[in-house]
Design a protein around this nucleic acid. Structure first.
Length: 184
DNA sequence: GCCGTGATGTAG
DNA sequence: TACATCACGGCC
């Protein structure tokens, strides 16, 4: 039986964390039923200097969770209709997080999971999970074998064209050839 | 296939 | 007013 990733797992360089999360299993227990899915695509938001990161706006009611301890969920509403989920990384105070962009359904997950808004909808992730510790009984990530480096593709992040030179940096990662990634 | 656009709520 | 999105319609 796989073990839960401890919160210390996330206290490391955000790019490394984004790569290390590929292949791991996201679990959300809803009505006693464990929804499980394999993480196949992530993006790194690497701190206050990263103009694409919400934390670059400074500490606000919305972003303060990003400055808190690692291993905690940052969930927010986007475009009025979708949720996006991240896990806070690095030591407390850095404003870093990894966005989960796509997952591959494993158990009790219905519908499209190819995209940050879609995966949250399919897994039942909403604002009530914001600030939830990612080693909780109902919400956590299970360890799984490391995805070899040669199978990890890096690309520019999606939807961050406004972030000037930060838009071009290859901070999006996915498992090569996986059919559940959101975009090539 | 690609491109433009509407839905929708809240932060700044 | 813009937004770390998605689905759909028109066009070629």
């Amino acid at each position: 039986m796989a073990t839960r990733l401890p919160r210390a797992f996330y206290q490391r360089d955000t790019m490394q964390a984004a790569r290390a999360l590929l292949g791991k299993e996201l679990v959300h227990v809803v009505d006693g039923e464990a929804r499980r899915a394999r993480i196949v695509e992530t993006e790194a938001y690497v701190g206050v200097h990263d103009l694409a990161s919400h934390s670059s706006k400074g500490v606000t009611k919305r972003t303060e969770v990003m400055y808190g301890p690692p291993g905690v969920a940052y969930v927010y509403l986007i475009y009025g209709m979708y949720h996006c989920m991240n896990v806070v990384t690095e030591p407390e105070g850095k404003g870093c997080a990894v966005l989960l962009r796509a997952v591959e359904p494993l158990a009790n997950v219905e519908g499209n999971t190819r995209g940050p808004g879609l995966l949250c909808r399919a897994m039942g992730i909403d604002l009530t999970l914001n600030r939830c510790a990612m080693d909780s009984d109902a919400f956590h990530i299970l360890d799984a074998p490391e995805v070899p480096s040669r199978q990890i593709v890096s690309r520019p992040r999606i939807g961050v064209a406004y972030a000037r030179d930060w838009a071009e940096k290859e901070l999006r990662f996915y498992i090569a050839g996986n059919p559940f990634i959101s975009k090539k």
